[in-house]
Amino acid sequence: MTATVADSLIPYDEIVQEALRAVVGRVLNSIAGTQALPGEHHFYITFKTQAAGVDIPKRLIERFPDEMTIVIQHRFWDLKVDDRGFSVGLSFNQVPSILTIPFAAITGFHDPAVNFELRFQANDEDGVEPHEPADNDEPIAMPVEDGSNVVAVDFKRKRGD
Rank of each mutant, 00 (worst) to 15 (best):
D161P: 15
F120T: 05
R75C: 07
G147W: 07
G108E: 04
G85C: 10
D78L: 08
A105L: 04
E138D: 12
P65M: 00
Q73L: 02
Q121G: 07
S97V: 01
V114A: 07
E14V: 06
D13G: 06
G89R: 07
I140K: 15
I45E: 00
A32T: 03
V153T: 08
A32Q: 08
K158H: 13
Q94M: 13
A36R: 15
V114N: 11
K58A: 11
V153G: 10
V81N: 07
Q50N: 07
I56C: 09
D66A: 11
V128P: 12
D111Y: 03
I101L: 09
I72V: 11
D66K: 14
H74E: 08
P112C: 00
E132Y: 11
F155N: 09
F43Y: 12
D126N: 15
L37Q: 01
V128C: 12
G127P: 11
L79A: 00
D135Q: 14
I98W: 13
I98R: 15
Q50C: 05
E138V: 11
K158F: 14
R26E: 09
E62C: 06
D154I: 10
F86N: 04
A134I: 08
N93M: 13
D78P: 06
H41Q: 13
S87M: 01
R84C: 10
G85F: 06
D83C: 05
E117K: 14
Q17L: 04
T34V: 15
N123S: 11
R59E: 06
P57E: 00
V71T: 12
R157M: 08
P133V: 01
L37A: 01
R75H: 11
V88H: 07
Q94H: 13
F92H: 04
T34H: 12
D135C: 10
E125F: 15
V5T: 04
I56S: 06
D78N: 13
G85L: 09
D161M: 15
F76M: 09
T2I: 14
G108V: 03
F155M: 13
L118N: 01
R75D: 12
F120L: 10
H74L: 08
G25D: 02
F76E: 03
I61E: 13
D55V: 10
A141E: 08
F155S: 11
A105K: 05
E14G: 13
A152R: 15
A52F: 02
D124W: 06
T46H: 09
I140W: 12
N93E: 13
R159M: 12
V95T: 05
F43W: 03
E117A: 15
P130L: 03
R26C: 06
D111V: 03
V151G: 04
T69D: 06
I70L: 11
P102W: 00
P130D: 02
Q35K: 03
N149R: 14
I72F: 05
I70N: 03
S87I: 00
A22I: 00
